[in-house]
Design a protein around this nucleic acid. Sequence first.
DNA 1: TATAGACCTTGCCATCATTGGAAGGTCAAG
DNA 2: CTTGACCTTCCAATGATGGCAAGGTCTATA
Lengths: 152, 152
Amino acid sequence: MNIGKAAAASGISAKMIRYYESIGLIPEVSRTAAGYREYTDKDVHRLRFIWRARDLGFSVDQMSELLALWQDRGRASADVKRIALAHVAELERKARELMEMSETLSHLASNCQGDSRPDCPIINQLSKPCGCEEAVQSEGDKADSNQADRQE
Amino acid sequence: MNIGKAAAASGISAKMIRYYESIGLIPEVSRTAAGYREYTDKDVHRLRFIWRARDLGFSVDQMSELLALWQDRGRASADVKRIALAHVAELERKARELMEMSETLSHLASNCQGDSRPDCPIINQLSKPCGCEEAVQSEGDKADSNQADRQE
DNA sequence: TATAGACCTTGCCATCATTGGAAGGTCAAG
DNA sequence: CTTGACCTTCCAATGATGGCAAGGTCTATA
């Protein structure tokens, strides 16, 4: 099967398949006399593995480790679990980071009239002169009000 | 004030200040006879604005719009709010995406013994042959489940 | 058989925001 | 005057992906 078929079968673009080969994530496959790459079902199976791992947000390096463990009959599931949980922690960290931004901004926006006048708590917050503590609290997350948010 | 001082005062690295200047996010500042950039308090104030916007995850393009609105005495707060809310939606989308990955993986990991044996639901899931919808089996989860078919 | 068009090959560029480094000039303290 | 910290510009790399170009190959059809 050529690279186009392998791409369609695996869900990974031909471009990315060549890229993964170039960086050594997957082995070089055999070529036809004309130089076309030839993929076996086994190769496609590996690509699908990568496709799923990628879908879970694993990096190329992590996928490389996972592929090695997959191949390793003597693997310890603890090794797989460790990689997975480290990734979960990272995903959660990033998600929290995004949610903090979102909440801060959402709060500011909720206090913005959104009309034709220039006064705006979002702009006010961004233009504050220093990084003083009275900035929007993202870590403390005190639920207690400060609704009005001194928007001068 | 030279770029190093401006960087320290604004929280943005000298490297990034030069970059922001090169792409036109901030105007070119005056230079000393020796070619050193000179920053005024106003310049630093603008850099702090950028620092805060960046901290909220705004892209350079969005910051450019926000800076223009900041400078615009006749701005409509609705324009600011629109940008902010669009960004909130994007942040939430990304956060949800990460959380979905995290939850899927977390669930798989919770069913993994994490011992010295090779059987592992995480590897099993990744190695499934097709994109079938029979997601992860829940708590009940037969531990006997299909051994990941390795390639060899 | 000739040809069109779909596919393959390699290689380079672009993204986005940021960091790093090299080579060379400048400034301030000792 | 030296030293070291700073500044300047330019170039490169990151990670994962898409795009394009130039050229070769395969396949179906006229």
